[in-house]
Amino acid sequence: MKQEMPWHSRFDLLGVTFLLFIIGALGSLPSIEGSGRDLNYLGNLSRFASQFFPPDWSILDRTLEGLFETVKIALVSTFLAIILSIGLSICAASTISPRWLLWPTRMLLNVIRTIPSLLWALLAVVIVGSNPLAGVIALTFYSVGYLAKFFSEAFEAANTDAQEALRSLGASPLQAFQYGLWPNARPIIWSHCLWMLEYNVRSASIIGYVGAGGIGLHLKLYAESANSWNKFSLVMICILVIVTILDFIGEKIRKSIRRKLEGNSSK
């Protein structure tokens, strides 16, 4: 006869974590207070939202120019971050690097990740002034923190059999890495690069807010000028369009990579 499991056996680590999360969220509710004034929230929202429409198309040319600059900042910073991240990720991958190199690199990446993109942008503006270069510097550093971590995880997860086989057939460690491990990790790494590029276009739209170039500066100007919310909304629409296009292209490429990689699972 099947023995009944005790009631508490279903609380594994995942279950307990989820339970603590629910308790924490509910417990935090009482501390979320409004202003205390009797405001008509819905009325306020509809009055504010109505100022966004109709969008002001007369500033389209200027907006597209800003958007173009944003995309350029994202492209350059992602490119630089990829180059820096490949080297750092090799140092941070436990399957490749010795311990004395592994932990300092991981610590460095942790520190880089701790600083949000807006703060990187502020730091860069202080150093190089208010221009697109500040945006490139800020997003490069910000992206390296994430990309190097993702890449090192891709190297650790990749199948090392081919690398070992090539070593036994006479290849040097670098050659075995290039032709044995890299091809297995490369599809995942490219997928992360695409994601980072999409993410950087979004971030580059915001960092302009603190003077690091791109469309963010337009957002700041319109948000702070009187009766410019219809211009603000046009900028938002343009950002939405570019991000959606990138998302669509990225997903198509990722799907094709997945299909190629999963090709042998059915055989």
């Binding site: 199948n159 059999d161 081919a162 070992e164 086989a165 032709y179 044995g180 491990l181 091809p183 297995n184 990790a185 490369r186 599809p187 990689l261 042998n264």
Partner: peptide
């Protein structure tokens, strides 16, 4: 187990 590089 052949030990090929799948992504090459």
């Amino acid at each position: 187990d052949l030990q090929l590089a799948d992504g090459a």
